[in-house]
Design a binder for these strands. Structure first.
Length: 439
RNA sequence: CGGGGCAUGGCGCAGUCUGGUAGCGCACCUGGUUUGGGACCAGGGGGUCGCAAGUUCGAAUCUUGCUGCCCCGACCA
C-alpha cells in the first residue's frame, strides 16, 4: 500500500478524551474514530488489525471443531421472552420497535437465537457434539462505556455455543474451547491466564476468564509464576483426544482476579518468590450452563435409548475489538505501538526519505516490489513529509520492520533496517534487507 | 444513576470573571527555499463560539432550559 494513496489520518496531538494508552494510540494512529459514547468507526489501519485478530480466532475455532455461522444483530423480543431473559436483561439491552410496532432488540449475545436454530434442525444425539460460532457485532448499553474500544457499547464478539448430549460430553467441549483459547492468545503473543470465574447457574469449575497481563490492566490479578511458563499446546494438538490433562495443568496453579482472590490461600499454596501480583485485562470468558436455555426453549435430542432430553450447552466468548486494544496495552512504548507480528497492520514499512530523488525512488520502488513478491504486506511511505515526521509516524503505527531508504545509504548500496520492537538498526545491502525482513 | 468537569475552524487551546470587530499553535491550500529525527519565508482559505429561549443598543461572555461528551463509582467480551 502506498501511503500517498492510503487513508491514514494520524493525529499529532493527544486527543483530550483518551485516558488510557491504547485508546490514545488508536486515535492517534488513525485506527478508530468515536462516533458516539462507546461507539466507534474502524478506520483502515484499525480494521486491518481487527481482521487479523478475527482471522486468528477463526482459525483456532475451526481447528477445535467449531463451525462458523453468522447470526443477525437484530433479534426478535419473542425469542427472549421464551427464555425469560427479555425482562431480566434490563437496561443494558437496546430495545427497539420496527414499523409494525413489533418489539425487536439489538443482540447483546446470542444464546436464544442459536438455541432456536439448533432446535429447528437437530433431533438426534448422533448429530452431537456440535459447536457453532459467529463473529458479530454486539450492543450492550453499558452504564459507563470508557477506554475506547476496551469497553465500548458496540463491540465485536466471537461467541461459540456447544451442544452435547450429556454434562460429561459438554465438559469435553468446554476443554476443546479452553485449549483453543490458549492457542489463540498464544498466537497473538499474549500471555493469557485462565482464572476461575464466578460460576454460572450450574456451578462447579466450568467457568473461566482469560486474563492477559498488562501493566495498564483494569483489575489486579494474582497467580503462581509457574502458570506463565506452562507450554501452550501446539497447532497439531489432537482435539479428538482427552484434553483434561492440559486443562488441569492450567487450572491447578493458583490464579485469581481481585474478586475471587483469597490472600491466605495464595500465601499457603504459593511460595513467596513464585507469587505474581499484576494487572490484567479480561479478553475471554467461557462457561458451561447446562440446560438453562435448552430446557425452556425445547432444544431436545433423542438419545440412544429413544428418550428426548434437553441438550447441555456452553458458551465461549472472545472480544476481538477489545483484544486489539489489549494488545496495544501489552505492546507499546513512548513512541507508539509495537505490534506483535501476528496482529501488525503491515509487515514492513518502506520509508523513502527523499521522494523525487531518482536514486532513492528507484531503490524504494524496487524494495517495495520485492516485498510484495515475497508475500509481505508492505506500507510504502512515498509522501514528501520530512524524515522526522515519517519516523514518528512509522513508530506510532508500529509496523514491525522499517526499511529506511535515504541518499546516504543508497550511495553505498545500503538501506537501514529497523526493528520496531527491539529498536535494533542495521545498515544492510538491499538483498540482505529483504531477507532479514522476509525471514 | 450518584459525584465532578468540559463544549470556541480538522486537532490542541486562549478569550467568558469585568458584554463592545472571534484569536493562537498545529494541520490545510498557493508560491519559493529546504530535505537522515515532527523545517523556514511569503501569501491564503476555513468558525451557526453545542442547541433553544431570555436580558441588553449590543451576548462566545450574563440568566434559564436542553443536548452531547469526558473523568470517578456499581456492571461487562
Amino acid at each position: 500500500m502506498r501511503l500517498s494513496r492510503f487513508f491514514l489520518p494520524i493525529l499529532r496531538e493527544d486527543p483530550k478524551e483518551a485516558e488510557i494508552v491504547s485508546h490514545r494510540l488508536m486515535l492517534r494512529a488513525g485506527m478508530i474514530r468515536q462516533e458516539s459514547a462507546g461507539i466507534y468507526a474502524w478506520l483502515p489501519l484499525g480494521l486491518k488489525v481487527l481482521r487479523k485478530v478475527e482471522q486468528i480466532i477463526r482459525e483456532e475455532q475451526n481447528r477445535a471443531g467449531a463451525i462458523e455461522v453468522l447470526m443477525p444483530t437484530i433479534q426478535s423480543a419473542d425469542l427472549w421472552r421464551e427464555s425469560g431473559r427479555y425482562d431480566d436483561y434490563g437496561k443494558e439491552m437496546l430495545r427497539i420497535a420496527d414499523r409494525q410496532g413489533r418489539d425487536m432488540l439489538f443482540g447483546p449475545t446470542n444464546e436464544e437465537m442459536i438455541t432456536e436454530i439448533f432446535r429447528g434442525y437437530v433431533k438426534s444425539y448422533r448429530d452431537l457434539p456440535l459447536n457453532l460460532y459467529h463473529i458479530q457485532w454486539k450492543f450492550r448499553d453499558e452504564i459507563r462505556p470508557r477506554f475506547g474500544v476496551m469497553r465500548s457499547r458496540e463491540f465485536l464478539m466471537k461467541d461459540a455455543y456447544s451442544f452435547d448430549l450429556t454434562a460429561e460430553a459438554s465438559r469435553a467441549a468446554y476443554h476443546r474451547m479452553f485449549v483453543s483459547y490458549l492457542r489463540t492468545f498464544e498466537r497473538l503473543d499474549l500471555k493469557a491466564i485462565p482464572m476461575r470465574a464466578e460460576s454460572g447457574p450450574i456451578g462447579g469449575d466450568m467457568s473461566h476468564e482469560f486474563i492477559i497481563l498488562a501493566s495498564t490492566g483494569e483489575s489486579e490479578v494474582f497467580c503462581d509464576k509457574s502458570i506463565l511458563d506452562l507450554p501452550v499446546p501446539s497447532e497439531d494438538v489432537d482435539y479428538g483426544s482427552d484434553l483434561s490433562g492440559i486443562v488441569s495443568d492450567f487450572t491447578t496453579p493458583y490464579a485469581a482476579t481481585e474478586e475471587m482472590h483469597d490472600q491466605a490461600e495464595f500465601e499457603r499454596r504459593v511460595v513467596a518468590d513464585q507469587r505474581v501480583t499484576a494487572r490484567g485485562i479480561e479478553v475471554g470468558h467461557i462457561f458451561y450452563f447446562g440446560t438453562k436455555y435448552s430446557e425452556p426453549m425445547g432444544a431436545k435430542v433423542t438419545g440412544p435409548d429413544g428418550v428426548d432430553v434437553p441438550v447441555h450447552m456452553g458458551s465461549y466468548g472472545i472480544g476481538p475489538s477489545r483484544l486489539v486494544a489489549a494488545i496495544i496495552e501489552a505492546y507499546h512504548d513512548n513512541d507508539g505501538i509495537k505490534w506483535p507480528d501476528a496482529a501488525a497492520p503491515f509487515d514492513t514499512a518502506v520509508v523513502n526519505l527523499k521522494p523525487g530523488d531518482g536514486a532513492t525512488d528507484t531503490v524504494s520502488e524496487d524494495l517495495y516490489a520485492k516485498l510484495q513478491i515475497a508475500g509481505k504486506d508492505a506500507l510504502y511511505d512515498d509522501t514528501d513529509a520530512r524524515a522526522g515526521a515519517k519516523f514518528a509516524a512509522m513508530d506510532l503505527i508500529g509496523v514491525p520492520w522499517q526499511l529506511i531508504i535515504g541518499p546516504r545509504g543508497v550511495k553505498d548500496g545500503q538501506v537501514e533496517v529497523k526493528n520496531r520492537r527491539t529498536g535494533e538498526r542495521d545498515m544492510l545491502s538491499y538483498d540482505d534487507a529483504i531477507s532479514r525482513v522476509a525471514a
